[in-house]
């Protein structure tokens, strides 16, 4: 292969490129943007920003939900007799196939004391928390569609990992086998450009280190 062959190929490419013109529809769109900058600019701007905003809105909503559940749990009176930490009594919960977490359940119901001691739960110390910057890996479970409609192929989607209480999974239509199951769970949501979740999958339960330390002295 000689240099002249390469040069002539490049010239052919450059000549063809020089003849390329922008389609007229670009002019129409840009001039429409001039006429109505706000409306059209919104339509032609990068869809990426919309998706990011939608994802942030969903994440903020989830964070508020989680915070509210934490607040409610930490202020609710708890009777000592009703709560016993059990490793063996592991109630079946949503997709509980290999959960390493512990769940507070009623192991041995006892008569309620006449003056139950009201205790406040200490704030949960959650470790092994997945940082928001880490790549979303580890979700081997299949995605479950949340809507009856099939997602459009061209729709921009965003995968968002959120940490929610188990009980809030009901809002996504997930049937909880044990309605009293507590604790947090990481789920992946596929969020559409309108901010609504399309699919969901469970990633892993969140291990409550406080409970772990209470159990193993």
């Amino acid at each position: 292969m000689s240099d002249s062959d390469v040069d002539s190929a490049w010239r052919a490419f450059a000549d063809a490129d020089a003849r390329v013109g922008a389609p007229d529809r670009i002019r129409h769109a840009v001039m429409a943007a001039w006429d109505g900058p706000r409306e059209v600019r919104g339509a032609v701007r990068s869809r990426h920003r919309d998706v990011v905003r939608a994802a942030l809105a969903v994440a903020a909503t989830m964070a508020i939900t989680v915070a509210w559940f934490h607040f409610r749990d930490s202020h609710a009176p708890v009777r000592d007799a009703d709560v016993a930490v059990s490793r063996s009594a592991r109630p079946p919960s949503v997709g509980a196939d290999d959960e390493p977490d512990r769940v507070a359940t009623v192991a041995h119901p006892e008569p309620v004391r006449s003056s139950p001691r009201v205790v406040r739960r200490a704030p949960r110390v959650l470790r092994d928390v997945i940082s928001a910057e880490t790549p979303l890996t580890g979700g081997s479970a299949p995605l479950v569609a949340l809507t009856g409609e099939r997602a459009l192929a061209a729709e921009p989607l965003q995968l968002v990992r959120v940490r929610v209480p188990r009980t809030s999974l009901r809002a996504f239509g997930v049937a909880l086998i044990d309605p009293d199951a507590s604790g947090l769970v990481d789920v992946d949501l596929v969020v559409g450009s309108d901010g609504l979740p399309r699919d969901i999958r469970r990633v892993r339960p969140v291990v409550d280190v406080r409970d772990q330390s209470m159990e193993s002295p």
């Binding site: 490129d17 390329v20 840009v30 943007a33 059209v40 600019r41």
Partner: peptide
């Protein structure tokens, strides 16, 4: 020129249209 540049950079006419439009917006 903007369209040609975007087309050569991305290798896609559709992407070049979007980029050209966005440049002028």
């Amino acid at each position: 020129v903007v369209y040609r540049f975007a087309r050569a950079m991305t290798g896609s006419s559709d992407a070049a249209e979007d980029i050209t439009q966005e440049v002028f917006v």
